[in-house]
């Protein structure tokens, strides 16, 4: 018994001290981290639909429909965008599978459902290779050429970057999913139906 205590007490003390230290660090950094996440999200929303104010859709009923429409791609958030109080479109935040894990892609859609912009919020692709989907600007810039009512086949017809197929597909699958979400769910909501 005495021997057990001799072993247990140091481990216990170490764990308690470590936990206390981590609690303090967490408390200090938590607001900063939340702020950084919010800023990053805000930046990518602004990039896909400039000057709009975004409200997150929070209806669980719609969420089921959205998930069904998106298929294998995870829809993390759907935002309604308004400029000066008027309906201006939608932004869809999806997690799509790239080469190094999920890529979080934000897709902006205008009121007619055509793509207004695409940004990549976070990813874990190979630097210098998979990251070409961001650094080769023409790749993301080709998505706004998609017209309203675009289908999966239209997205597949866009160019991928050679040597970066998996990452390119990650982005394309994300955009295709956003297109399906628009056609099957968002377009039916109408202007005032987003509450």
């Amino acid at each position: 018994m005495k021997n057990a205590l001799r072993l247990v007490v140091p481990v216990l003390v170490t764990c308690i001290v470590a936990a206390a230290g981590l609690a303090v660090t967490y408390k200090v950094t938590e607001p900063k981290i939340a702020e950084q996440d919010r800023l990053a999200e805000e930046r990518s929303l602004q990039a896909v639909l400039p000057d709009a104010t975004f409200t997150c859709l929070e209806s669980s009923r719609i969420q089921d429909d959205i998930d069904a429409a998106a298929g294998p791609v995870d829809v993390l958030d759907t935002f309604h965008a308004a400029i000066d109080g008027k309906h201006a479109g939608w932004a869809v935040k999806v997690a799509s599978r790239g080469y190094g894990g999920p890529m979080v892609v934000v897709i902006g859609l205008d009121t007619s459902g055509s793509v207004s912009g695409v940004t990549i919020l976070s990813h874990n692709e190979t630097p210098g290779l998979g990251t070409k989907v961001i650094t080769d600007e023409w790749f993301l810039e080709q998505f706004p050429t998609l017209e309203a009512g675009f289908t999966d086949a239209d997205v597949r017809n866009l160019d991928a970057i050679s040597g970066t197929t998996k990452s390119s597909n990650g982005v394309r699958n994300g955009v295709a999913a956003a297109g399906r979400v628009y056609t099957e769910v968002l377009s039916g909501l109408g202007e005032g139906g987003f509450e």
Partner: peptide
């Protein structure tokens, strides 16, 4: 186990600080 707890604590500190700054 004690080494691992100590190391993990410092790594988590670095992790949180990098995420924040």
């Amino acid at each position: 186990p004690i080494f691992i707890v100590i190391i993990a604590a410092f790594v988590t500190i670095v992790d949180l600080v990098m995420k924040a700054f």
